[in-house]
């Protein structure tokens, strides 16, 4: 066997291993990219760049460690570089603080007592807000949106999220808390706008 063939064989193996390890996460990566970038063409570009970068750095990936989190970390960097924008730290940006149990409080304190039924019937609550969940999520600031995507959609643990976004776990916790309360306010605002509830 000449050396060229050995190298070719090695490359083939490496490529096969890369594909087997990373392709299963393509759908998740695409969805996260689509939610962050909003446009299909943009999302496709981000995922493409992510895979090229991941392939280039595949030797740095430690086998047996969390590949999905590794890919999401790359995706995040691609996203940030592409738009030359930093996902600002919400701790330095002023956002309206939303109280705990916002939606619950709105529903229970409302004059029309029929809203209390939402608390007893999950089906009605789902009808009430279900269709707006995606638009509400879309409307969140990037730094809130990303933690909700990572936690609620992708099911990453706080520790994994902390690794992906490069912030301490305490930050992940408080950001998720604020993001979810913010999301509840958005859901309530949608309901009001659609005339489902009266202010």
């Amino acid at each position: 066997m000449n050396i060229r063939r050995v190298v070719a064989e090695h490359n083939k193996d490496r490529k096969r291993e890369f594909e087997e390890t990373t392709i299963p996460y393509m759908n998740s990566l695409y969805n996260a990219a689509l939610r962050m970038a909003r446009e299909r063409a943009e999302a496709e570009g981000i995922v493409q760049d992510t895979y090229l970068l991941a392939y280039k750095n595949f030797n740095k990936f430690q086998r047996g460690t969390n590949c999905k989190a590794w890919l999401f970390k790359i995706l995040r960097n691609v996203f940030i570089n592409r738009y030359r924008k930093n996902i600002k730290s919400p701790d330095t940006v002023q956002y309206e603080e939303v109280e705990n149990y916002y939606l619950y409080n709105q529903l229970t304190s409302h004059q029309d007592s029929s809203y209390i039924d939402f608390l007893k019937e999950p089906g009605r609550l789902e009808e009430f807000i279900g269709e707006d969940v995606n638009s509400a999520l879309q409307g969140l600031p990037d730094e809130f949106k990303e933690v909700v995507i990572l936690s609620d959609i992708e099911g990453f643990t706080y520790e994994e999220i902390s690794h992906i976004i490069g912030s301490p776990i305490g930050t992940v916790k408080s950001r998720l808390n604020r993001a979810r309360r913010f999301l509840q306010k958005k859901l309530w605002d949608y309901a009001v706008k659609k005339g489902l509830v009266k202010r």
């Binding site: 759908n27 969805n31 609550l125 269709e131 969940v133 959609i153 999301l183 509840q184």
Partner: peptide, 15 residues
């Protein structure tokens, strides 16, 4: 509410 949010944010299909 948490369950509804998780269920409703279903994924788009990969092209």
């Amino acid at each position: 509410l948490h369950t509804i949010i998780r269920d409703k944010t279903k994924s788009d299909k990969l092209p």
